[in-house]
């Protein structure tokens, strides 16, 4: 079994952070497994967690009474998922479902927030990475919204 610190060290998201920082972060984390179909989190529920996907696939879904369930995004090996733990009211806005058997590192959001507050340098390093990924996801969402290949309007 590899330690969580090692797992973090090898992930694209945490790569480059010094080991002492990774050890601190690992203190808020544990490994988790989700069988295909299992929910990681559901819209409206308290958002306490943040996930690094090691292997598998997670679908971010939206359920809409008139359109049924649609998948908005998929998260793959090495990606991170879950932002709602960062922003009040700390509630999930979408569903996340394991679309395949998935192994992940699960972080406790409250614990992470505590460490960031206590150590602004750590907080800044983490937020830079988080905001980079959030930026990419926002870009992706905007592009999807364009419906680039949709019926020419």
């Amino acid at each position: 079994m590899r330690s969580i610190t090692e797992l973090l060290h090898d992930s694209p998201f945490f790569a480059g952070l010094p080991d002492p920082v990774l050890e601190q972060l690992a203190g808020c984390a544990r490994t988790a497994r989700f069988a295909e179909g299992q929910m990681l989190f559901s819209a409206g529920q308290p958002a306490n967690d943040f996930y690094l996907v090691r292997h598998g696939r997670v679908a971010i879904e939206l359920h809409n009474p008139s359109r049924g369930t649609i998948t908005l995004d998929t998260v793959h090996d090495g990606d991170v998922v879950g932002w709602s733990w960062l922003v009040p009211p700390y509630l999930w806005t979408f569903d996340a479902r394991a679309a395949a058997d998935t192994s992940a590192v699960e972080f406790d959001g409250a614990c992470l927030r505590g460490k960031c507050d206590a150590d602004p340098a750590l907080g800044y390093a983490l937020m830079r990475r988080v905001s980079h990924v959030m930026y990419e996801r926002l870009q992706a969402a905007r592009v999807q919204m364009l419906d680039m290949y949709g019926a020419p309007m």
Partner: peptide, 8 residues
């Protein structure tokens, strides 16, 4: 860009 849940 969009998929029903059965899309793998």
């Amino acid at each position: 860009d969009y998929a029903p849940p059965e899309w793998d």
